[in-house]
Amino acid sequence: MAHTTTHQHESNTKRIWYVFIILSVVTIFEVFLGIIRPEFLTHTHFLSMKLLNWIFIVLTLYKAYYIAWAFMHLEGESKGLRRGVVWTAIFLISYLMFILLTEGDYIYGVFKTSNVAWDF
């Protein structure tokens, strides 16, 4: 018998519905923002990106946290497993993002300032 059944599980149904409500509300809020696109958010820039896009990214990470912690039950796993999964992903992905986005921005500059015509 797998050892997971040897200790008692209390029911998590309440927490599951709570997380569902959080995820739904955040999604509705995102769609709402995405449709109206308030001007003060699209015209304010933070670290060379629109504030609106930062809000979307932060809310996405917030949703990802709930999915991983509550649904994938990382909150109940041992610390070692949790850190092994989360930090590996975070470090590798931020590195990848940093390199590729910097490079993309550089190429944009090359296109823009080069003597080659792109619009003809």
């Binding site: 990848l96 590729l100 986005l101 993309g104 190429i107």
Partner: peptide, 11 residues
């Protein structure tokens, strides 16, 4: 990330 790369390239 590749999508982001191309998007930044044609931002």
């Amino acid at each position: 990330a590749a999508y982001g790369f191309s998007r930044f390239k044609f931002v």
